[in-house]
Simulated assay, not measured.
Amino acid sequence: MNNNFRNIEDTRISISELMLPSHANFSGKIHGGYILKLMDQIAFACASKHSGTYCVTASVDTVDFLNPIDVGELVTMKASINYVGRTSMVVGIRVESQNIQTGKVKHCNSSYFTMVAKNDEKEQVTVPGIIINNEKEMRRFLEAIKRLEMKKKRQEEFNSDNFVAEDYIEDLEKYNVKIEL
């Protein structure tokens, strides 16, 4: 069992950046790909700060763009470790934008990046555990466990050699799909 634990608060990271016209898409809003790039950077920084090692992105879960971001707004991203496994960490990221003239703040995105710690030989390495200090941190840890369990269950159900398409035809009838098996 890992005897090395870190407080979540000690590895939290926050970054802010003014959104420029060069970050905009054709409709004049900030390009989602640019926001994802920033999110990947802060996830890397948070996971590396926690683990003390180089980290790579293994997966990204739940990227919902809730509100558009305008040119000239200040985007702030806050990242913290929500869950740790043996070599992986789930970094929770909250993205907010602020109109710097009016002060109005919008929640734009919350997402979860799974990061894996690596050594200089690119081999996975054990990461420190986390110390849960409050109910919010406990809830986030438990939510991460549930997301992992749901993902594993979904993979088992649909990657199985036992998958039978006919068992799902009725489930698809209410969707905009035509089945021609």
Rank of each mutant, 00 (worst) to 15 (best):
L18Y: 12
S160D: 08
A47N: 05
V164W: 02
V164F: 05
S51V: 03
I130T: 02
I15R: 11
T114Y: 09
Q98M: 09
D70C: 06
F113Y: 11
V116T: 01
L36C: 15
T62Q: 15
R12M: 08
S110P: 01
A144D: 08
A117M: 06
I13F: 10
V63L: 12
K174V: 04
N134P: 13
Q41E: 15
A58R: 08
N99Y: 07
I30S: 14
F44V: 02
F26I: 12
R154C: 11
F26A: 09
V127R: 06
N162D: 09
F26D: 09
L172A: 06
I179H: 14
K104A: 02
R139K: 12
S111M: 13
R94Y: 05
H31N: 15
I179F: 13
F163W: 07
L18W: 11
I132R: 13
A47E: 04
G28W: 12
N99M: 05
K152M: 06
M115F: 02
K49Y: 00
T126R: 04
M1P: 00
V90D: 10
R94S: 06
R12E: 06
K153Y: 05
E180D: 03
M19C: 13
S16Q: 13
A117G: 08
T57Y: 07
F65P: 04
M115Y: 03
V90I: 07
K122Q: 07
A24R: 12
S51D: 00
A43T: 07
E143G: 04
R139V: 11
I179T: 07
A165N: 04
Y175S: 12
L148H: 07
I15A: 11
V105Y: 02
M39F: 10
C108S: 10
S80T: 00
K146T: 02
I132L: 15
Y34P: 09
A45H: 09
Y112K: 05
G28S: 12
M150H: 10
K104Q: 07
K29T: 13
G32V: 10
E9N: 14
L172H: 09
D120G: 06
R140I: 00
A144S: 13
C108F: 08
A117W: 04
N133M: 12
N109Q: 15
F141R: 13
R147H: 10
N82Q: 03
K37Q: 15
A165R: 07
S16D: 09
